[in-house]
Design a protein around this nucleic acid. Structure first.
Length: 722
DNA sequence: AGCACGCCGACT
DNA sequence: GTCGGCGTGCTC
């Protein structure tokens, strides 16, 4: 019997088990770090990864042998192990939990034989396409660069392996800059690979098509959670073994093993989707920057409205800054867009004359749409309520309709009405399981909770008093579409939101209808404000954006500004239309500084205002936050757990540079009958916060036993909201 | 999380 | 007399 080696193995076990470090197993043969294995854990058999470093051998504990290992999978490289190790440490999760969560789910199930069958299938497919002959597609000659694009590329090249923030207004041609960087990176050496991150799955097919067209001689793969498990494994494997040169994906793609990594691009780097909100709560954008440093490759962060975190770093000189402030349809964009020519404008499209106290026209700005702020309180409202749409906006919509142009109405609330209300007794359609209203969906006459999913038929009469006169309060996209159709019967109105796009392929079909000109007015939630390039759209209106002005969420204002500026970018993407394009804002606070900055298209000025507020309040990026969250049957139980945790913290010397705030209910206090309470931890120093969490959290693992009713607890490092 | 073990109510 | 409720505890 050969002497067995002892291996560290990161196993798939959830965080609250306390099994944070790799466990130790024996193996007859030495297995390289990064090898996928199956090991016995208790009565189960779980997947794991042979880890790096030496095994920690527990005292008086018999080690068990590794059950099986995958020989067909090249071991995960050391830099991948280091990335997972860093992320697990930084975000306070188990190494094995994170490692297995970011690998393709198929790998968990497949054994050597199964993997061999897959590989044979991939090889056969590759052979077939090779026999079909490489399509004689020559790479298209890249479009000529605008001066600002050239300058940005020079700045990025000068920065070398560092991080560059590319601040470019919508329509300034950021994508072309990305493509040139990819081109440059791939030209560096034959094994080179580029990683492109995008915030939403919806945006990958568009970009993938454009990238594939630009690099016909290279293999481009995408990685996101909508792929089928076999597709995802195949694409991941192509990246892992170096066959794919360009990997395009959502946040999970930041964990792709890439032997030839030469460039990382993070598009729309400010987007909140980069922060994983469940399980290991990592920020793919921040990890991308870390990974760029680790591998000494350039990282490009692109946005029209950078996150304040990135903006400050650029101001401090920690990131290079490249700016593109001119909006001009580059040849690439014309090429990429629909073949339809821009409709001719009927004469001098005179701006809608502002009706009494309504719109205030401003001069066009660098090819950006003209902003029109409508003071909803100044409008006459005969029935005690301001109208849904200001008459001036309706007139502007009618003009677009007459000219055959498209309009977009944004309303960030799906469903028909956010709540049903009984005028007689005051009953409202609350969710019995959550601290939230159930939304009225007229389409199937249901009351649906958007948090726990509870759906019931709308009652005929008030459940409390029997009154028949129960009415919807407020307005969602369903109702807005209906009202719009009534106001403009001749318009073809379409609605795009999470409800209308639930079915597979529905979003693509609906977008195609818009692009084909089968839609005059599109009503949608924020999901249509991002990225989509609507060529014939010359009007975008935010129907009711004020909620973001006074939210308790400290990032709400930053997000609203980004959303509105981005939405404005949907209008008049082609230069020919830009002059006639308008962004309308219906507001009750027309003098709010956020709208004033929007009117000037002044990102930098608005950022400065927000940063001053953040500094005064001690909020990021001037401080670093973590949230300790506890879920329990009763709020008091969760609070008691958090208070106990705070008492333990007070005993630690590492707590000195850290502030702990009192436990408070989560903004959405109850979901599916679970009460959620959280405690904010804040420090000026990221390092001090990390050191504190490292000292503190291990001491919390035994606590739930003393606190009945506590279902789970978790820490969220760098939370998006508090 | 799984999956045990473990000690108290309504059934063949 | 058993089947089974989910409380408590462990997993190299």
């Amino acid at each position: 019997v050969s002497p067995a080696t002892v291996l560290p193995v990161a196993v798939e076990a959830p965080q609250y088990t306390g099994l944070l470090r790799p466990l130790s197993y024996t193996s007859e043969q030495p297995l390289a770090p990064g090898t996928l294995v199956h090991v016995p854990l208790g009565k189960r058999r779980v997947p794991g990864v042979v880890w790096r470093g030496s095994a920690e051998v527990p005292e008086n504990n018999e080690l068990r042998p590794v059950a099986a290992h995958l020989t067909r999978l090249p071991p995960l490289p050391d830099d991948w192990l280091a990335l997972v190790e860093f992320a697990a440490a930084y975000y306070q999760r188990g190494i094995g939990e994170l490692a297995l969560a970011v690998l393709p789910p198929e790998l968990r199930r497949l054994d050597d034989a199964g993997l061999a069958r897959r590989q044979a299938r991939w090889a056969a497919a590759a052979k077939r396409s090779a026999r079909a002959g490489a399509p004689a597609v020559l790479p298209p000659s890249p479009p000529e660069l605008l001066p600002e694009q050239s300058a940005a590329l020079a700045r990025i090249a000068q920065e070398g392996a560092g991080t560059t923030l590319l601040h470019g207004v919508t329509g300034s041609g950021k994508t072309e800059v990305y493509l040139r960087c990819v081109e440059r990176a791939l030209a560096g050496h034959s094994q080179a690979q580029a990683l492109l991150l995008v915030p939403e799955i919806n945006l990958t097919p568009q970009l993938e098509a454009r990238v594939a067209q630009r690099f016909p001689q290279h293999r481009v793969v995408s990685l996101h959670s909508r792929l089928t498990p076999p597709q995802r494994l195949a694409n991941w494997m192509a990246a892992h073994n170096g066959q794919a040169q360009v990997v395009l994906g959502t946040r999970l793609a930041v964990f792709t093993p890439l032997p030839g990594l030469a460039l990382i691009v993070v598009d729309e780097e400010h987007d909140a989707s980069y922060k994983q909100q469940e399980g290991a709560r990592y920020s793919a954008r921040d990890l991308a920057v870390w990974r760029g440093r680790q591998r000494a490759v350039p990282v490009l962060l692109g946005s029209a409205t950078p996150s304040l975190e990135s903006w400050v770093r650029a101001q401090q000189g920690r990131y290079a800054l490249a700016t593109m402030s001119t909006r001009a349809a580059s040849p690439a964009e014309l090429e990429a867009g629909a073949a339809s020519p821009a409709p001719a404008h009927a004469g001098a499209a005179s701006p809608t004359s502002a009706q009494a106290g309504a719109a205030s026209p401003t001069p066009a700005h660098a090819g950006m749409p003209r902003l029109r702020l409508v003071d909803m309180l100044a409008l006459p409202h005969p029935r005690g309520q301001p109208p849904v749409l200001a008459p001036a906006l309706v007139a502007a919509l009618q003009e677009r309709l007459a000219r055959g142009e498209q309009s977009l109405l944004l309303l960030n609330r799906r469903g028909y009405a956010p709540v049903l209300h009984c005028a007689a007794c005051g009953w409202k359609s609350g969710c019995p399981n959550c601290s939230a209203w159930r939304v009225f969906h007229k389409i199937d006459r249901s009351l649906r909770c958007h948090h726990c999913g509870l759906a019931q038929a709308v009652p005929r009469a008030c459940l409390d008093c029997g009154n028949l006169d129960i009415a919807p309060l407020g307005r969602g996209t369903e109702k807005l579409s209906e009202e719009l159709q009534a106001l403009l019967p001749q318009a073809r109105v379409a609605r795009i939101d999470a409800d209308s796009t639930r079915a597979a392929g529905a979003l693509d079909a609906q977008l195609a209808a818009v692009h084909a000109g089968e839609v005059d007015i599109l009503v949608g939630t924020q999901m249509v404000a991002k990225g989509h390039d609507f060529r014939r759209m010359t009007l975008v209106a935010a129907v009711n954006p004020d909620a973001g002005l006074f939210s308790s969420d400290f990032r709400a204002s930053e997000r609203l500004f980004a959303l509105l500026l981005q939405a404005a970018g949907r209008a008049g993407r082609s230069a020919a239309q830009a002059s006639a394009s308008e962004m309308w804002i219906q507001t009750q606070h027309p003098r709010h500084p956020l709208y004033a900055a929007l009117e000037r298209h002044d990102y930098a000025g608005h950022a400065q205002t927000l940063l001053a507020e953040r500094q005064a309040a001690g909020l990021p990026p001037f401080s670093h936050l973590a949230l300790l969250r506890a879920d329990a049957k009763q709020a008091e139980q969760a609070t008691a757990f958090l208070q106990h945790a705070a008492e333990l913290a007070a005993l630690l010397p590492e707590a000195a540079p850290v502030a702990l705030y009192p436990a408070v209910p989560h903004p959405l206090a109850r979901v599916a009958n679970v009460e959620r309470v959280q405690m904010l931890v804040e420090s000026r120093s990221r390092q001090a916060l990390q050191r504190f969490l490292w000292a503190w959290l291990p001491a919390l693992h035994p606590l739930p036993r003393q606190h009945k009713g506590v279902i789970r607890w978790a820490v969220d490092v760098d939370p998006m909201a508090i």
